[in-house]
């Protein structure tokens, strides 16, 4: 059953050392209010999984700048000015993953699969550092492991009291799949939470059974 909590209570679900999946593509779809509260509460030694981290002032990058993160899994982090030095100094671990493989690894984690076999990244640094080449059905593939989180932090446009979610246009990005791949799914809902039945079943992007906690933004 989904709970509707205030921001402080909701973010208490996150613990030190957790793997946190964060929805969003730069600012679009990033649950900034949840990140504000995470910085306030200061859960540390986090592993964060996000498309890009955005910057040290906006998005998941703020958690890095606040010193709360021990490992990042990103497809890109070119806007995170503080990260390269922190990586060089061994203060933080950075795993890079091709964007589509990242989405697919999260899907595998959420859908009960043992990982993915993909042509993406063969012959690159991804194979050398984070994957394993295998040969099946006459073709080479890169094996990449599934990704699951202890918590997923999500931004949605609309939700009903059953936790059914609807995203606004490209806000959807990684938010949809991350709801499948974490033990606790924590959603920042931007519009007033509506009575059950307000969202037509065929318009639901994420079924409410996946959602654990909603916060009214």
């Amino acid at each position: 059953m989904v709970q509707i909590l205030n921001l402080e209570e909701a973010v208490r679900h996150i613990k030190d050392g957790d793997i946190v999946l964060g929805g969003g593509f730069y600012a679009n779809g990033t649950p900034e209010r949840i990140i504000d509260e995470m910085i306030k509460q200061g859960q540390k030694d986090l592993t964060i999984v996000n498309n890009d981290g955005n910057t040290t002032e906006k998005g998941m990058g703020r958690l890095v700048a606040a010193g709360l993160v021990k490992k990042c899994i990103f497809s890109w982090c070119g806007r995170m000015t503080c990260l390269p030095q922190m990586v060089d100094e061994g203060k933080i671990e950075l795993e890079l993953c091709p964007q589509g493989s990242l989405a697919e690894r999260i899907r595998a984690g959420g859908f009960g699969l043992g990982g993915i076999l993909t042509p993406v990244g063969l012959g690159t640094m991804v194979e050398a550092k984070w994957g394993e080449r295998t040969h099946l059905n006459g073709q080479d593939w890169l094996y990449q492991s599934p990704i699951r989180g202890n918590v997923a932090i999500i931004e949605a446009d609309r939700a009903d009291e059953e936790g059914n979610l609807v995203f606004n246009l490209t806000q959807r990005n990684f938010n949809q799949i991350m709801c499948y791949a974490a033990d606790v799914v924590l959603v920042q809902v931007n519009n007033p939470i509506e009575p059950a039945g307000s969202i037509h079943p065929q318009e639901v992007h994420v079924p409410g059974i996946l959602v654990d906690v909603m916060v009214q933004a």
């Binding site: 390269p84 950075l94 091709p98 990244g121 690159t124």
Partner: peptide, 24 residues
């Protein structure tokens, strides 16, 4: 083959979707 995401010794900014976009 193509290289378009990292200059040796440069900042590790990541490949984004580029590795996916050359496959398929």
């Amino acid at each position: 083959s193509i290289a378009n995401w990292l200059v040796p010794g440069g900042k590790m900014a990541g490949m984004g979707g580029a590795m996916d976009l050359v496959c398929g």
